[in-house]
Write a protein that binds this DNA or RNA. Structure first.
Lengths: 348, 348
DNA sequence: TTGTATGCGTTATCAT
DNA sequence: ATGATAACGCATACAA
């Protein structure tokens, strides 16, 4: 592997000068700067980032700790992170970690010398568990919050989004509205549930524990929750699923049970994944700007890194948007645009 | 940040001994080994990986270069890679890169000193462009192949899978079978097209250029391709989409056009994403073991790293499996299992 | 403007 | 069994 020494020897200059040219630091004559860049380019020299980080104590790398994430959400949030990181000259070190406190701490510590900061996504973790993090390294919490204000965090407007969607169901005449919840230990799920209840209370509708079924954000969970709901003596007329995957499972179960959507049962989801509009009927959902979520998380992290983690902590929320399609009734079908290729090179 | 010197001082030992204990290399008395491990643990010491890689010239990191990938495929392939990497003590440095040759080369070079090897996924790239890679670093090509045998590669049994699916359509009586292709520059897409044509020829069916529509693997592409196909004077009776996303778009367009699936039109996809079985009707597809694809790619890469890139090159294929559901007709509905939670902690 | 020399944190080599 | 020290590749303070 070619080192800075090799380049210096080849250009008949000292390593210091080569370093200066490559980093654009210090004074160099135009002549030698051209010479050295030429030589370095020809030799395909690339600085050894380990050596560099040893002396600069910067790695130009961001750690990303994720739980088990699936599908569109995972890919889109990483896309947002990577785009933003690359634009700022950073790489992404991605690692899945067990959501428990020990796993997170271990994973973060393992990033020492590898990353300048870490985005931690652990919706299943109680926030306080993260309190005793080594405070030296900048951390941004994604989709969860810490008790105090000692860690930057970025979350989705879960509660408001859920409240608006349930509010819409109420506004079109529903009174018995069921929810397919996520895990109670999941922050997003808990907030969406809160929004659901809030909305019902605001409309003066009694909460019915029978109408709250627990799921785990999978299609299978939505499917089986519906089987239970329709077996109820006093069936709901609308179902709000805490994410789109469960809503899709719900649609499937209703279809097989011969229950018409939205005529006999309205269905709504959360996330607004691209597939939602292609469902039968097209699925009403709460749109989450996932790319922006990842991008903003990285921006927050970079800010913390720039300020050496000595900055006022922020707690931000990305806002959601109601997207009403046919599955909640009363609205004309939204025809997908024939060719809105917002995706470019897509594979497999 | 606590260094090995700090640990040595605290334990009243030399850094050499501390290093020996931490790496399990060389002889150490049981007494000092316990002492040092205790001190190191208490001080939460973690070796600086940059410094370590400087001398060992190993980073314990694998680079992953991906094109724009979406949804289930992206997340699942990374999951497979990460699981396998972690099991072998490696981290994943993930980066999206432009699929052109310059982008790939630059990206790989930027990994110097950061990764011990790279998995390159660039289905849109002609293989020969990769030939003049710096041969020093081990590389595994994912979903594309190199001309010669100079680079390890791992691909999907695209041709065989497509051939079997089209064969199935023929076997249930179809003669006019359309295909919604992917980009002609995409390796997977090209191979699936090859399988489609091969299957038709085997059955003695003439190829009809009008029945081959180009898409880009998005739902929108499948949607609009169908609108074109059903406008044909001589409509097909079956549609094979080169991936599930396009098949789902196709289902949506057929539904809105009032064309019954599978009675008036059979539809098949490729990939068998989890959602496929929840479609209406449940979508027949060619199952691709995506997790295994990622896992195996990392295994191949680790093998190359272990042998210092001086090993006989391999060219492997992961095999596909036909999954027949209702969208191709003649088969009883497959009911999703009420609670087969193969997914554990799922988020958003 | 350029060169010399030091140190970053670690492992490995050689003494002891 | 343990310690002293060189070396890894680089950036930088200081000297020239």
């Amino acid at each position: 592997m070619v080192t800075i020494k090799d380049v210096a020897r080849e250009a008949k200059m000292s390593v210091a000068t080569v370093s200066r040219v490559l980093n654009g630091s210090g004074p160099v004559s135009e002549e030698t700067r051209r010479l050295i860049s030429e030589v370095a380019g020809r030799m395909r020299y690339v600085p050894h980032s380990g050596a560099r980080s040893l002396i600069t104590s910067k790695t130009q790398t961001l750690g990303v700790l994720l739980p088990d994430l699936y599908g569109e959400f995972f890919s889109e949030v990483i896309r947002g992170m990577d785009d933003t990181a690359q634009r700022n000259g950073f790489h992404l070190l991605i690692s899945r970690a067990y959501a428990d406190r020990h796993g997170i701490e271990t994973a973060i510590r393992a990033m020492r010398g590898r990353a300048d900061g870490v985005v931690v996504m652990s919706p299943d973790l109680d926030a306080e568990s993260l309190l005793n993090l080594p405070s030296t390294i900048p951390v941004v919490l994604l989709c969860s919050v810490s008790r105090g204000n000692e860690i930057d965090s970025l979350t989705i407007q879960n509660c408001r989004g859920a409240r608006e969607m349930v509010g819409h169901l109420i506004s079109v005449g529903h009174r018995r509205i069921a929810i397919i919840k996520g895990s109670p230990r999941n922050y997003d799920a808990a907030e969406r549930l809160r929004g659901y209840r809030m909305s019902l209370r605001e409309a003066g509708i009694m909460l019915d524990p029978l109408l709250e079924r627990e799921g785990d954000f999978t299609e299978a969970a939505g499917y089986s929750a519906v089987l239970e709901l329709i077996a109820l003596k006093n069936r709901p007329t609308a179902i709000f699923a805490a994410n789109d995957s469960m809503a899709i499972g719900a649609l499937s179960a209703l279809r097989e049970s011969g229950i018409a959507v939205p005529e006999e049962m309205a269905v709504a989801g959360f996330d607004d994944i691209p597939l939602a509009r292609y469902m039968d009927p097209p699925l009403s959902s709460v749109h989450v700007p996932i790319w922006e979520l990842g991008a903003r998380a990285v921006e927050l992290l970079l800010h913390g890194i720039t300020h050496k983690n000595d900055h006022p902590r922020r707690r931000e929320r990305v806002s959601t948007k109601l997207v009403i399609r046919r599955s909640t009734g009363g609205v004309p079908a939204e025809r997908p645009p024939p060719q809105t290729l917002k995706r470019k090179l897509v594979s497999v």
